[in-house]
Design a protein around this nucleic acid. Sequence first.
DNA 1: CTGAAAGCGCTTACAG
DNA 2: CTGAAAGCGCTTACAG
Lengths: 376, 376
Amino acid sequence: MAQATAGASGNAIGGASGNAIGGASGNAIAGASGNATIYAVAQRAGVSTATVSRALAGSPKVAPATRDAVLAAARELAYVPDASARALAGRRTGALGLVLPHIDGAYYAELLVGFEMAASRHDLSVTITLANPRDDSARAVRELSGRVDGMAFMARSAAGTELVAEIARRRPVITVAREQVPGLEALFAENRETARDLTRHLLDHGRTRPVFVGRPEAGSDLEARHQGYCEALAEAGVQGRLLEADLAEDEGSQLADRLLADRRPDGRLAADAIVCGNDELALTIMTRLQDQGVRVPEEVAITGWDDTVAAAYVRPGLTSVAQPVRRLGELAAARLALLVDGEPADPGPVVLPSTPVFRTSCGCTTPTPRSAKELS
Amino acid sequence: MAQATAGASGNAIGGASGNAIGGASGNAIAGASGNATIYAVAQRAGVSTATVSRALAGSPKVAPATRDAVLAAARELAYVPDASARALAGRRTGALGLVLPHIDGAYYAELLVGFEMAASRHDLSVTITLANPRDDSARAVRELSGRVDGMAFMARSAAGTELVAEIARRRPVITVAREQVPGLEALFAENRETARDLTRHLLDHGRTRPVFVGRPEAGSDLEARHQGYCEALAEAGVQGRLLEADLAEDEGSQLADRLLADRRPDGRLAADAIVCGNDELALTIMTRLQDQGVRVPEEVAITGWDDTVAAAYVRPGLTSVAQPVRRLGELAAARLALLVDGEPADPGPVVLPSTPVFRTSCGCTTPTPRSAKELS
DNA sequence: CTGAAAGCGCTTACAG
DNA sequence: CTGAAAGCGCTTACAG
């Protein structure tokens, strides 16, 4: 118990006031873990705690000389304000909550980086919780809501719409890349149009037997991507096919085997283009196909989604779609900061553009110059 | 200001007590944002706030019937305790701080996931801050220290040893994969021995002209990896070479060009094995070399470090080293939870084993079965 | 087993 | 420009 309780009992050296009947008597100069409190700073600077508070907050109502004295005292004592006390008194935690699914890979990391950067710009901390679908994330999410000023719910995080709405009754809430909750601000990365463009691109390469791989679910990103794919086919009068597969490696290789077995009478593969719901699926299928002797993109073109690191290293380079993930995170935090400041919510969904990154797995001979991606 | 101030003025409906002279009079039944407070729950359950507090904390001293009444009242009011008030009164924030460098890729994401999972198991929240080397992370780190019970500093996060030591004077601190601070608990992933094993492995494949690519700095992971590499060479009486390169893509391709130009009299590459400091470097070099017609591993073997996703998808598969990143995160949070509970620090560094993942870029013909990696 | 009351360390009207 | 004091919403000895 050393750290936790050392000096925890009241070594009250008495604040400035001597009013033993009023509330704020007997305030400790040093807090529980030996940290200086605002009382210590006030005493050392020869001012009241109110003045210390104002000086530290940068209030313009404090005389320069006073401010300097306070700042000096605070520095000398290595004073770090207690965030809990500050939050309780100021009715502001100064923190934003972020609910993520169990991060796998770079996507959520990017989201988090963007979110933290923007939050930090607004002098806000970020407290995260990983909402796992299988455990009761409700408890964790509610707990989180009790320690932050606003919350962002990311993608397919376990928190259901019900729960999000409940939290939104008490705190500003924004959702990112997940089914919109009526009345709440919502951010998205573009899916449908980009998928349509990407599919058209494949068609332009002369592909006539495209399939879509992934498992579209109502309201999901995958659904929108599949829809865009269908639109492009409809425009061109081409017949498509949907192969349901989960976004996990194992199903990918099974699918590749299925694709491999599915031949036309002339021996060629039934599919000559594979639009995958994400890179993981695309990479798994592509390498499996190649290991079995299929030439990509000659025999079959393949595209992914997410523009993962691996997409650039495989041969042929995997054509994919870069999502504005970091900006999604940044925007989420920035909006939340405003909402917390009382700005009214603007529930019209905001859709950020995604960018196709053409490498050579789609049939292109020259990949898009790298800078094109950086421009996004 | 809607959300923030609605009802913020004291709509005090009066707690149980009527003592206007004592401190706790005029407590609001509903908090600032319309949230129920402990007073509302107490009133509804017909008990005191002390009893509500105890019942909610699961104290065994509360009669079952009373507890049920309190729980029911809390549920009906959708009561979520204010974490700030709780922290202030209980002298515990219930949160752990995590200082990370600007997360790029899966490494820190994994670390974070492990940390959050373990913290969550201990009913602790995690608040993160991204310490960027260029901005003054000191301010952010200190601020964070004011809102958590303990802090973990990860890898090459910007916070210097000085700052870490300062924080450690006030809070339990643990460092992960970074230069040890005297007196503080420290966690590491194994580097030296693993690098030695990996280099030996290359030597066993008959390689005689290995180079090490990376920029070892004092006390860094890279230094330990380079050291292990040197040890293996020394054992075998083989002459090595160090090519300094930063862990960024651009330097990788320059290096590949240099490697390509460096030929022996018989026209073969000067290097026949490249031990890279990380996968990114290895992948960049490997693809560049391959694009120029070099056969891997026949002409030159290559190994990476980190076992990134891409390592499994490129051909040949990149032999790499899987680090126990998630477990590092888990252990950090678990230890911190104990330290916060008063357990004395045990500064002896803890080193978690890393696992070589043999694919075919090293010269192996059969990759290590996938399960071997999962076992780790 | 339960309640009255003090107190956690700040901020912020309010008064001067 | 500054201070005295109330109060933020909880927890926890203390007393019964």
